[in-house]
Design a protein around this nucleic acid. Structure first.
Lengths: 122, 122
DNA sequence: AGCTTGTTTCGACGTTTGTCGATGTCTTGC
DNA sequence: GCAAGACATCGACAAACGTCGAAACAAGCT
């Protein structure tokens, strides 16, 4: 909670300007496109598992070998990681033999904003 | 934030028991399946527009005729509304000539919970 | 250089998805 | 009863998606 105050709201907006909360007003076509792209990235069970594995891994990052045990072949894992990367949810960096993936905070913040509304509004 | 405390966490769990925040720990296959199903429902631009139109409509509900102007044919609108309903995001009720859709708070709360984390954790 | 391990790319396949026009169902009003 | 409007379902089609095995690429080791 306190960590929240370390980041100014305006700054968070600047990083990934997208849309107001889903309940605020009807989205324009462009807003809907952007929002849908983010949701779609997490619309597959394998990607959810990969994402949560990276996000919860110690140090905030994980190499592919750490998270490949999700029940699909290794090329498929790579394919889904690429999708998550294209959607802006993850970033990757090669260090020696391994490739490390980490969560991209800004897009995650944008998604959080989409779903940040008081229960009363829903 | 304060509005959140009006609802007990246990109660929120009871309504739509699903998963902890995405950044907390690697999801199980079942948790990932559930979470992905919810995200997938909002993974299409037309559905995002329909959903935000319903969610932001006065009175918390809207008939199909109020929100059909999203650039696709009428059967397609109906198709997407059905998908949103199957995902638990909307519910519908016929009153006379018109069918009214409204947001289902519990599933929306579950999605909010998935994305409720401090930016520091991301 | 050659081998081994980690990761991505390629090509192919079956399945799911979004879209439409046509048709069906339900309700109201004449 | 019948016509009209609101909405859902059906059937068809192209495009996108998830998956795999095979092959390519990259880095380290002997």
């Amino acid at each position: 909670m306190q960590a929240l105050s370390l980041i100014e709201p305006e700054a968070a907006d600047a990083v990934a300007p997208c849309c107001p909360p889903l309940t605020e007003r009807p989205f324009t076509a462009d807003e809907a496109e952007t929002a849908a792209r983010m949701f779609k990235a997490l619309g597959d069970p394998v990607r959810v598992r990969l994402f949560t594995a990276v996000a919860s891994h110690e140090g905030g990052e994980a190499c592919v070998c750490d998270i490949s045990d999700v029940g699909v072949s290794q090329p498929t894992v790579s394919h889904h990681l690429k999708k998550l990367k294209e959607a802006g949810l993850l970033s990757s960096e090669r260090r020696g033999t391994w490739v490390y993936y980490r969560v991209e905070p800004s897009v995650l913040a944008a998604m959080g904003k989409l779903l940040s509304f008081t229960p009363a509004a829903a």
